[in-house]
């Protein structure tokens, strides 16, 4: 399950990535393998042609992989960089659904941003780490300043 961090409680030894586009273009794109194929199709409805190219969902044209949506890039950042925490504020509902279904990874946001399809997450706050398995409970935890 993924770990959700409140912005104020991010450990000093973990790097927070807010600009998911840039991080993806510089680092994650080089790490992509076959695991990315389904994610890219699911979120952007685009076919991954090879490591650095996709086929556009709109006109079938071949595009550099930097043309993926920010939401899709954020999901891939989370999947391929498990030592870092990613801000998910730019993700659409479809990307959020995928994030909350990942086996692991670290996310944060200034405000609660939760998939209605969430099952279980690890919530990391000032008071320690707890497992949360309901939307309402996670929203309440995230909204709590403490």
């Amino acid at each position: 399950m993924i770990a959700v961090y409140k912005m104020k409680t991010i450990p000093k030894d973990m790097e927070l990535i807010k600009l998911n586009d840039i991080f993806f273009n510089k680092y994650t794109s080089e790490k992509l393998d076959e695991k990315a194929i389904d994610i890219i199709f699911k979120i952007d409805q685009s076919e991954m042609v090879d490591k650095f190219t996709i086929r556009s969902r709109f006109d079938g044209g071949i595009l550099n992989i930097d043309k993926l949506s920010t939401g899709c890039k954020t999901v891939l950042n989370i999947m391929y960089n498990k030592d870092k925490i990613f801000d998910i504020r730019e993700c659409g509902e479809n990307a959020l659904d995928v994030i909350y279904s990942l086996d692991n990874g670290n996310i944060t946001c200034d405000y609660p941003l939760i998939s209605f399809e969430m099952k279980k997450v690890k919530a990391v706050g000032k008071k320690g780490t707890i497992d949360i398995n309901s939307y309402d409970e996670l929203k309440e935890w995230w909204s709590d300043e403490n």
Binding site: I43, D44, R57, F58, S69, T70, C72, G92, N94, A95
Partner: peptide, 10 residues
């Protein structure tokens, strides 16, 4: 607003 990948940034 909208889902990721619908063409907003395009």
């Amino acid at each position: 607003v909208g889902d990721s990948g619908v063409g907003k940034s395009a």
